[in-house]
Design a protein around this nucleic acid. Sequence first.
DNA 1: TACTTTTGTGAAAGTGAATTCACTTTCATT
DNA 2: AATGAAAGTGAATTCACTTTCACAAAAGTA
Lengths: 203, 203
Amino acid sequence: MSKKRLSSTLRQQQILDTTLEIIAEKGVGGVSTAEIAQRVGIVPSALYRHFESKEALIDALLDRTHMILFENVRKMTLKKSDPKEDLKSLFLLHLEFIRKNPGMPKLVFSDAAVFGSPERKEKVLSIVKNYMNKLTEIAEMGRQEGNFLQDILPEAVAFSMVSFVQYVGLISNLSDGKTDLGELAEQAWGYIERAILSDHDKG
Amino acid sequence: MSKKRLSSTLRQQQILDTTLEIIAEKGVGGVSTAEIAQRVGIVPSALYRHFESKEALIDALLDRTHMILFENVRKMTLKKSDPKEDLKSLFLLHLEFIRKNPGMPKLVFSDAAVFGSPERKEKVLSIVKNYMNKLTEIAEMGRQEGNFLQDILPEAVAFSMVSFVQYVGLISNLSDGKTDLGELAEQAWGYIERAILSDHDKG
DNA sequence: TACTTTTGTGAAAGTGAATTCACTTTCATT
DNA sequence: AATGAAAGTGAATTCACTTTCACAAAAGTA
């Protein structure tokens, strides 16, 4: 009933936000125009003033997610103090991010992404690759600048991070938040650390 | 047209096989009674002679998958010759298995599993836990019997294996089989190996 | 062969969801 | 205030499913 009118650009962002929220709760498959509209406070058909179709909406969300993700990872840098702690804090930043934005990994790793149209898959693949490249780059920088990380495998950092996100996502979804993410992360980090850090970095 | 009648137990297995095939291609969300029936060579409504509903069919498939997976992992054992090679061959067995049964990880890690009913999630969680426990057990045995694997972290093996499956699955799906799984596995193994094997095992 | 049970068929009913469209309301601009 | 464009509404449409049901055909059994 609230005849609040919003400019299209604002409404669009609001719709995308809401959709990501629903994805966080129910996954991409759980998204319906009816629910988006209801949460936004408009009627389903009104969505079509802002997006051509539901698929286009998801694509737009993917694009926006790509940007945000890229922005976020761009800001991450190693502080080259204690390289080991540094790397760990990178992981924790990561964890913090997916905690605050639980919809993003669920969108990127969703069935809709994996089994979508070729264009959709292309899009998702480029997100993942881009992301991993950026992470690899960070690790590479850390290796060059720090005098401790000589034996690091930059690709291993990227690989581990992505695996990490997937794994944490899986477990926390399945166990309905009953699992302590912090603890899970600590544990996972323990394994990952060994893969990333070289012998003399460990002791 | 083919008025071939099959006993229910046979038909049931055939239906489950076909469904898993479709899942491998299109994901759980891509499964329809129409397509199952068509591939099996019967009419959609005939499916209801064998399963109460489509959901029940997926549940049955999950149960069967649980059994097969458990059987498979039960057969895996370390041969305690060269522990490093041994562990690697365990990974390769694993890879081989998911290559031959691409539907299984896609079913277990699907949105339908992750966002399904509480019972469904319970079921999937027990599959994953069971599986990881078994893997942990194997690694533990390897550590006790072999005289090289003293510094192994059994849980790290399980963790790495699951991450591995997820990661390989993701990349191979997204890149449409254009990625060489063998190569990807080699690379991933390189990272994982470092996480699992202790210092003196590496050299 | 006759009878019963089981499996398969085809049409139809029921569902839920995306999308279209003619119409209305709001807002900015003049 | 008048006008036009943009945003919102509600009803209707379409579509792809799943599921039900009465009937037919096959297999098993006596």
